[in-house]
Nucleic acid binder design. Structure first.
Length: 615
RNA sequence: GGUCCAUUGGAGCAGUGGUUUAUCUCGUCUCCCUGUCACGGAGAAGAUCGUCAGUUCAAAUCUGACAUGGACCGCCA
């Protein structure tokens, strides 16, 4: 193919008077009769091609036959436009076509290839290659690529070694559910895809590589969310002979470079540190959104002797009364809207939502009559009330107060429009508990992971009162989302054993699962620490998208399936028997149904579109 | 495992039991048009209202089940 002069989107005034050869897709044809414009699009943008009577009948005929998304080669002369379009990068010029070659035709696409369209996720994913043609989606994928490049450059500049770790590993019952891959050579045995390269990277420190990084693909077989896909990429790093400060400095350096290279933003470092405790108490979450205030206040001291039993009762039961004040919320929130909020926080197990409005020097609302004059004064002082505020209260167990007020705070902030736009506010959350109690399983689990070093006090507590121990771990949080986290790792067998013990492992199980690690720790293992950043989530936030699907080229839908290729799908009996795998007969119907459906769809597609039997 | 919402021409929507031939916008097709850039103008085609069952004289509309999609809770060390 003939060499392209430049991308369509780069044909600016510099090219005036030059002959160009372009390739691209037809965005739009505007046929004005004897004058016709073609918007030709590629990944860099759009340039206007002009064809008119003087171009000759042959060229006009071709131009008139064009449809949207036809793939063209266009040769022509770049000329200055009579009417400049200031909204386009190429708006000063147009290409006076001398030759138009149709490289491929296109059927009418199921949706238009432009931004701000309203199409179902189903359709977008089924025709993902078309969705990916849309400028804003391309921009997000390109942004992701820029992050990847900045990351490689940064770690290379700082002497990190890029090491790939296996994707076929061993299943571990800790943590998320594994994706399993059956072994053909050992029927009945399974590999597991990595949830993260955690142990491999620690062992690489044992091997003396000292500074490791990897853009690691990770897999977790858990239900999806807007910010969770079953496969994703971690910017993974590990270092020897560094403490928290050392790892955080490298991380800040990396973030600084990414923000500069990708966004053109100068990130101020050092990034602020917040203790886990502060974060929970002021923001109700371990991933605080620090772009705005509206902090959570503990009002228990004010209400512990209140006549309002809902409040004093909750406190007497060992709970709390906590609240937030929403500026200008008194006018903005009707009783009806607040009832909706009450329903909303029920999902976090809150029993109810109490509220008062402070207007014209007085409190109103259903709870106001329970407030004594002292309560009122105390509230005014506590929240520094100026008038016009809505104050909401949750009286419940600590965890319920935190969860519901965290989510309320986020909602109120969004709705009252106090979140500054295009701001990327990072914060380190430090001084984590080592363990947290898992209500579901009824046992203690590692807050970070079981290889996290307790702090000095925590090491002592491991023998006496392990669940009070604090961890030497740190999370990097941005705009209320966890971007990454890491820790100082345990590098001594005795501490690692105590850790497993505190987690309720038996000696037998600990050694079956992690014996190799503890053996390694005994053979000259260096102190080490590391961190991993969730690349997809980071990219999503920089691209200011609200779904992680928008920064992965070929994501899964909310039910973990992929509607274009139809993954997952049943496999042949032969494949299964080779692996020694049998599908439970109770799934025969659904497997058959899926197979029939796929067959049916393929048949319909072939009948409608195939040229197989023609010519 | 659970909760909520959605499903109507190619796309997005309107339509609360009967004069609906199912609304509008975009797209598509035909014709006209030499300065458009979300071109404009005139016309046309295109829908067994997700599936199945039920209620009813009558169902896009009410009920139930299922399917698909989305959001959330659980889950995600």
């Amino acid at each position: 193919m003939e060499k392209r002069t430049n991308y369509c989107g780069n044909i600016t005034a510099d090219y005036i008077g030059k002959k160009v050869n372009l390739y691209g897709w037809v965005q739009r044809v505007r046929n004005l009769g004897n004058l016709l414009f073609i918007d030709l699009r590629d990944r860099e943008g759009i340039v206007q091609i002009v064809v008119n009577h003087d171009s000759g009948k042959k060229l006009m005929d071709i131009a008139e036959s064009l449809g949207n998304e036809y793939v063209l080669q266009v040769k022509g002369n770049v000329v200055k436009r009579s009417d400049v379009n200031p909204d386009m990068k190429t708006g000063e010029v147009e290409v006076d076509a001398t030759d138009i070659i149709i490289l491929n035709k296109a059927k009418n696409p199921p949706f238009e290839i432009k931004d701000n369209i309203d199409v179902s996720e189903q359709t977008r994913l089924k025709y993902r290659y078309l969705d990916l043609r849309r400028p804003s989606v391309q921009k997000a994928i390109i942004l992701r690529s820029k992050i990847l490049r900045a990351t490689h450059e940064y770690f290379d500049q700082h002497g990190f070694i890029n090491i790939e770790t296996p994707e076929l590993g061993k299943s571990s019952p800790e943590g998320a559910r594994d994706y399993l891959v059956p072994s053909r050579i050992y029927p009945g045995s399974f590999y597991a895809l990595p949830q993260s390269p955690q142990l491999f990277k620690q062992l690489l420190m044992g091997a003396g590589f000292d500074k490791y990084y990897q853009l690691a693909r990770c897999f977790r077989d858990e239900d999806l969310r807007g910010d969770r896909q079953p496969e994703f990429t971690q910017i993974d790093m590990e270092t020897s002979f560094l403490d928290e400060k050392g790892v955080q400095d490298y991380t800040e350096g990396l973030l600084k470079k990414i923000m500069k290279d990708v966004m053109g933003i100068d990130l101020k470092t050092p990034i602020a540190r917040m203790s886990w405790n502060d974060s929970m108490n002021k923001y109700g979450t371990d991933k605080p959104d620090t772009r705005y205030g509206m902090l959570i206040h503990d009002l228990s001291p004010i209400f512990k002797d209140s006549d309002f039993r809902v409040f004093s009762g909750a406190i007497a039961d060992g709970g709390y009364v906590k609240g937030i004040a929403v500026k200008n919320g008194a006018k903005a929130y009707s009783r009806k809207k607040l009832d909706k909020k009450q329903d909303y926080i029920k999902r976090y197990h809150a029993k109810g939502l109490a509220w008062v409005k402070y207007e014209d020097g007085d409190f109103s609302g259903p709870v106001a009559r329970f407030l004594t004059d002292e309560d009122k004064e105390a509230l005014k002082k506590e929240f520094n009330l100026e008038g016009g505020e809505l104050v909401v209260f949750v009286a419940d167990k600590w965890k319920v107060c935190c969860d519901s007020l965290n989510h309320l705070r986020r909602e109120f902030a969004k709705e009252t429009d106090i979140i500054p736009k295009h701001v990327f506010d990072f914060v380190w959350v430090v001084d984590w508990p080592l363990f947290e109690y898992d209500e579901g399983r009824g046992r203690w689990v590692a807050a970070h992971h079981p290889f996290t070093m307790p702090d000095d006090e925590g090491i002592k507590l491991l023998d006496t009162d392990p669940h009070k121990a604090h961890a030497r771990s740190y999370d990097i949080v941005m705009n209320g989302d966890e971007m990454g986290g890491g820790s100082i790792r345990i590098h001594k067998r005795s501490i690692q054993e105590k850790m497993f013990k505190a987690l309720g492992f038996t000696k037998k199980r600990a050694y079956e699962q992690f014996g190799y690690l503890m053996d390694a720790l005994d053979m000259g293992f260096p102190p080490h620490a590391g961190l991993a950043i969730g690349l997809d989530r980071f990219a999503m936030m920089l691209a200011e998208k609200d779904n992680i699907r928008d920064v992965q080229a070929f994501p899964k839908n909310a039910n973990a399936s992929e509607p274009m290729m139809h993954a997952p799908a049943p496999v042949s009996k032969g494949q299964l028997s080779e692996l020694g795998v049998e599908v439970d007969s109770k799934y025969s119907d659904s497997v058959k149904k899926t197979e029939d459906h796929l067959e049916d769809e393929a048949q319909k597609d072939a009948d409608k579109n195939s040229t197989w039997d023609k010519n």
